[in-house]
Amino acid sequence: MDIMDVSPFADGAAYVKGRFVPIAEAAIPVTDWGFTRSDAVYDVVHVFGGGFFRLNDHLDRFIHSMQARRLNPPEDRAAIEAVLHRCVALSGLRDAYVAMVASRGRPRVAGSRRPADCENHLIAYAIPWIDVIPKDVQERGAHLWIASTPRVPDVSVDPTVKNYQWSDLTSGLMEAHDHGYDTAILCDAQGFVTEGPGFNIFIVKDGKVITPDRGSLHGITRQSVLELCGMMGIPAEVAPLPRAELEDADEVFAATTAGGVMPVSRVGGRILGNDRPGPVSLSLKEAYWRKHAEGWHYTPVRLLETA
């Protein structure tokens, strides 16, 4: 292929300050409060086989997050949806990681410390598919470290508002890597399990699936897993999950938009089952991707118009 035939959006497409640009050209000012204060909310939806998965659910959550943090970019819901479609269409990707971000921006009044004085703005981008836990690690089951860093309290940072406050999660991740583990899970100060860096956690005990009721994002993949459990006749609930129950689980798996259902084979020093993904985890993983192929919650990407 001639180099001139390669699209400038082949590595991804972004929308910044009302313009669509190649991902490498996407930038914000260093004085944007989204950067200097992590004063932003975001959401991520994935594209599989040329269509968004649960796009309306992700838009609902994004709108909720913006309202909770009093962020109001000029684009309304319909415009945000159109931007996401165009980012994917420009990229030409059939499988993609698609982000939407509302940033506080910079104050209209120089030197102002009032959030209300800032000019909020929308950022969006589509890049090639990524997995929070690599596929080869998923195959053998992730090794999960229980971090010593406690999760930030819900009363301080609402975990149902998707945000970039990752200091505690990043500390847990560094600790996990220091010990040779793939990723981490955090408990709160009272010893209840919350979530990991970019994923919800589930345990399986005596055939029942349980996911934490606190310290966690209300994940769209988490919602999908609970729906699948209902379809498959697997008992499931959202409930308090003490650390001891995580350590004593029959199976453990993670769930996220960027990876789907991801089995775990080790938690701390404990090996689960035969050091491979468990049967319930694997059945849910298979069902999750099979339902994708069947068009479950599928919204086709709107292709670019041609002259």
Rank of each mutant, 00 (worst) to 15 (best):
C118M: 15
H64V: 09
R70F: 11
I185D: 01
G34A: 07
L173S: 11
V45R: 02
R290K: 14
R302L: 13
V261D: 01
E195I: 03
F253K: 00
P29L: 08
S65V: 03
T31W: 04
M232S: 04
D178W: 09
T160E: 10
A142P: 00
F9D: 00
A10V: 15
W129R: 10
T306E: 13
S91L: 09
E119Q: 15
W33K: 01
T211R: 03
W296P: 00
I133R: 10
G12T: 14
W289G: 03
L93V: 13
R106S: 15
A96L: 06
A13Y: 10
D95M: 06
V83Y: 08
R69M: 15
A147V: 02
N200H: 02
A26E: 06
R113H: 02
T256F: 02
E294D: 13
A239D: 12
C87Y: 12
A89P: 13
P159Q: 06
G219V: 13
R243D: 10
A13W: 05
A126N: 03
W296V: 05
L173K: 11
T36H: 08
T149N: 06
Y125V: 03
L173C: 03
I201H: 05
G180S: 07
T183F: 06
V264N: 01
P8Q: 08
W166A: 04
H177R: 15
V83W: 06
T211I: 00
S265T: 01
A26R: 14
D131A: 08
Y97A: 11
Y42V: 02
D206S: 12
G278V: 03
V209S: 12
R70W: 05
E75K: 11
I23R: 15
R70C: 07
F48P: 00
A236T: 06
V44G: 13
R222Y: 01
V16E: 04
